[in-house]
């Protein structure tokens, strides 16, 4: 079995996860990132994606939005604006958000507004994906 390390996942609203993990996978702004025990100290910016924690041989999955990750010798901390377990995701709300974002994207011309709508859309899509593909 892989060596576990201490992991904390925080959002401004709550402590999402606190415990140990054998591996952690998140979506950085440059692509998927996987952390194992003994990783060198690092800080990374995170995009919207899927958070995967392997703990005791089990795989826990969750939705995560933008944030950042800090790896230190003694602890790893993930700070996210939002993080939700599949059972906490409101599918209808995500679908509504998706429709709203798609609608906005059709109308907007301003680059910044388009970027924001794209992020909103990716959040909605990722929530739907995590919710519908979860088995736990």
């Amino acid at each position: 079995m892989e060596k576990p390390f201490a992991l904390t996942v925080l959002t401004p609203e709550r402590e999402f996860y606190s415990g140990t993990a054998e591996s952690l996978t998140v979506e950085s702004i440059d692509g998927e990132l996987c952390i194992l025990a003994g990783h060198i100290p690092m800080v990374a910016a995170l995009a919207v994606g899927e958070l995967k924690i392997k703990q005791g041989g089990k795989l826990l999955r969750a939705f995560h939005s933008e944030g950042f990750l800090e790896v230190h010798a003694d602890a790893t901390t993930v700070l996210l604006q939002a993080c939700e377990w599949p059972e906490e995701i409101d599918l209808n709300r995500a679908k509504e958000a998706m429709e709203r974002a798609e609608h906005r994207l059709e109308q907007q011309r301003n680059t910044q507004a388009v970027t924001r709508s794209k992020i909103a859309l990716s959040r909605a899509l990722m929530r739907i994906k995590v919710k519908t593909t979860s088995v736990n």
Partner: peptide
Amino acid sequence: EMLCDPSPERV
């Protein structure tokens, strides 16, 4: 000392 991924500016 920490590594910044992908770069300090982007982080």
